[in-house]
Design a protein around this nucleic acid. Structure first.
Lengths: 231, 231
DNA sequence: GGAATTGTTTACGACTTTTTTACACGGAAA
DNA sequence: TTTCCGTGTAAAAAAGTCGTAAACAATTCC
């Protein structure tokens, strides 16, 4: 099934990006690119990304925040590329959820080998298990970014889909408003809880049988929201 | 379930071995050691090894062969430690099945972080079951923020839940009114013992079989309240 | 450039939670 | 018995939170 692995490159310098693109294309990967963290999150949120190559030294924000946000809805491998050699940076990035940390300058051969190692592990750890989640009359294929209800396809906007993916990744658990806002909109939106009301409303409108009486996207007043699988 | 991860160190220099042993013990790992590849394979073959730290430069054989052999029966993570910095070696080791490659000399902090990253990935394979507290006909999953009584979910407000969590955290102990008030409402509310009567009342109403004859949320007149687990 | 889609913001009614008020109960001491 | 005091319920008022629709801005797509 997983023919061509899809790799997302988040890197601001066009030159390095091209270098990486060519290197990965030679490995037989499909390459997605972003020059800013926000774009990277959006692309990653669109689904179907098997590996993220992330430059930590981006101008528009902290790469650590990217890792944390991404980890909010995905377990996919993340490989850090950075010019920073200090141990502190490596430790912080790895502990935030990165899988490997490569210091610039690096050999293209080593990059290839480390990418292969990560992909191999991904392939082994049951990605084949179940990329499809079902609840009620809804079927969600997170990898293909496909949502259907009673067999009919459902259109979701990027933000709606990310919110859905994040809730589906934590079934039965309460996700606090802070967590959702920080991982979907960014750490500076932690106070803007009205976004959640609007977008949870959208999800209920599109996916619940009776949006007035939600059975899967439940409100925990004063705390956050809970995704209830089943039936 | 997997309390202490078991780590196998394959390294010939006793000094480095000790260094690694101490470093990993500090992380809360159980450490196995081997100074030759053959011994390492035997130990790994005995099972129960969650992570292998392997020095490539051993005198009694090629570490690459070790990896290949190990991969013959195990998918467990392998972290290479080596003095060799040439790219060729890294590529060969990674392609043979290693998951990470760290060049000596390395910082102990980075080693820790990379070990944690590998262990994290291993831990994710299994389904995380959160710890639950039970009493009477009530089951409380603090992590999921889920409370059920006779299988039926019970709705708790934020304050009710905090009060419950606090009492459950100190089973059998008397929690003074001052302590409860200070921790839940804030230090300036230590005199307002009235709140407690109202909210303990709510908990009894929602969780006790007979709210008039509480069996789990007991009053210690003049002092505070006590949570009585069991039955 | 214009149309369609998406994201952001605002406003307001409905609902939930918290706080406050009121009063009844019961044991201990006078 | 009466008078306290700390306690337990109920129900109100107040404060806060949530859901929805709709307008506006930004973006994307043709």
């Amino acid at each position: 099934m997983s023919d061509k692995p899809r790799v997302l490159i988040v890197e601001d310098e066009a030159q390095i990006r091209q270098f990486l693109r060519l290197a990965l294309a030679a490995e037989g990967c499909t390459v997605l690119e972003a020059s800013r963290l926000a774009d990277g999150l959006t692309l990653a949120g669109d689904g179907g990304v098997d590996l993220v190559l992330l430059d930590l030294g981006l101008p528009d924000g902290d790469g650590i925040d990217f890792i944390r946000a991404y980890r909010g809805w995905s377990d996919g491998p993340v490989l850090i590329l950075s010019a920073r050699t200090e141990e502190r940076h490596k430790i912080d990035a790895l502990d935030a959820g990165a899988d490997d940390y490569l210091t610039k300058p690096f050999g293209i051969g080593e990059l290839h080998a480390r990418v292969r190692a990560l992909m191999r592990r991904r392939a082994r750890s049951g990605v084949a298990a179940s990329p499809v989640v079902e609840f009620g009359e809804v079927v969600v294929d997170l990898a293909r970014r496909l949502v259907t209800r009673r067999g009919e396809p459902v259109r979701l906007t990027p933000i709606e889909f990310r919110l859905l993916a994040m809730m589906l990744a934590h079934p039965g658990q309460v996700l606090t408003q802070r967590k959702l806002l920080a991982d979907i909109w960014g750490p500076s939106y932690v106070e803007s809880s009205h976004y959640l009301r609007v977008y949870v409303g959208h999800l209920r409108q599109k996916l619940e049988d009776d949006p007035t009486q939600p059975r899967h996207f439940l409100t925990e007043t004063g705390v956050g929201y809970r995704f209830q699988p089943g039936s």
